[in-house]
Nucleic acid binder design. Structure first.
Lengths: 173, 173
DNA sequence: TTCTGAATAGTCGGTATTGACTATTCGATT
DNA sequence: AATCGAATAGTCAATACCGACTATTCAGAA
């Protein structure tokens, strides 16, 4: 498993014991800007971490609900978490831009159509930025992620505007 | 397969017939900023596109070299390519920041250590920016990708400097 | 000419990831 | 008290993906 996903699960469990569903909910709600982790993948990875002895699972029932597996960090897991954390903080992990692939082939379409399509993209981007700016403030480091997202989207918007602008001045042929 | 990878392969074959190895070489050399596509994955996806009738493969030998599969777009593939291209250009695909996961759990380490680790990250980031700025200019839309990468890395560097700076002023406790 | 290292051109077994599905419970509504 | 939709808590078969490996050719050194 990639180190980011591993760090993510261990990190959340280090803050608080949780069961799989809860873990996935939290990630979807508050961390969608850094990872996309499907529910079934989360369960798969939790199983694997348990087999590696980094976390322990125990049954628990609440009210009439069917029993569920609650996970907690082992001492080995705690140590491993700290190592991954150090490694993550010290490394620059390049972000990928899947939207650039289209740009790379844009010459296959007539200029006015490219312009119209990029205007649509611009709107979507501006909306994402507005949504990020609307996010209510969070505590501690989650706030950091929101601010990062906003700074990034602002830079993206400025860049896209530059691209759209230059599109008009392109000499045909 | 994700639409980006599909668009990428069809797009390259639309510009020029190629064989698998060549395709992968090009992607590694010139498009590492938008995708990470392993060689074996490229072959797997080419097989799949062929099965879907979007590309055709034919044997070809050059000199004494063993024969190899050369791929070309079918008319269906060309049409599909244009649709994917329109969709890609019109959509904002959010980038992910795996480096943010560490930041989210930074409070697990003492402040001076976080500071030291982030300085290391900053160096790596600055180096990546310098490398991007050193890239010799390219023709057409590939130049666009390089400029995007530079703009992005500049924004990342400014943001990281802000984070490191605020770290010093944080009141402990 | 024989060896060695780099470039070319892939294949294959195993791991990671996910979409689609199951099943239970709860609260509200009829 | 029966029904319906949303929330909870997962499972599983199928796909996607990749690391490590194989095999050939070529250029240059010994």
């Amino acid at each position: 498993m990639s180190m980011e996903r591993e760090l993510l699960l261990l990190g959340l469990l280090q803050q608080q014991d949780m069961h799989g569903y809860q873990l996935h909910e939290f990630i979807e709600r508050y961390m969608q800007s850094c990872v996309d982790l499907k529910k079934s993948t989360a369960y798969y990875l939790l199983d694997k971490l348990a087999k590696e002895g980094l976390i322990l699972s125990s049954e628990e029932r609440e009210g009439n609900r069917p029993p569920r597996q609650v996970y907690k960090l082992t001492p080995a897991g705690q140590a491993h978490f700290l190592n991954l954390l150090r490694q993550n903080l010290a490394t620059h992990l390049p972000a990928r831009f899947p939207g650039d692939i289209g740009l790379a082939f844009a010459d296959s379409l007539p200029l006015p159509e490219i312009h119209a399509l990029l205007q649509t993209r611009r709107s979507a981007l501006a909306e994402a930025l507005a949504a990020a700016e609307q996010t209510p403030p969070h505590t501690g480091s989650l706030q950091l992620l929101i601010e990062h997202q906003i700074a990034h989207l602002q830079s993206e918007l400025a860049w896209l505007d530059g691209v759209i602008d230059r599109l008009g001045h392109t000499k045909p042929g």
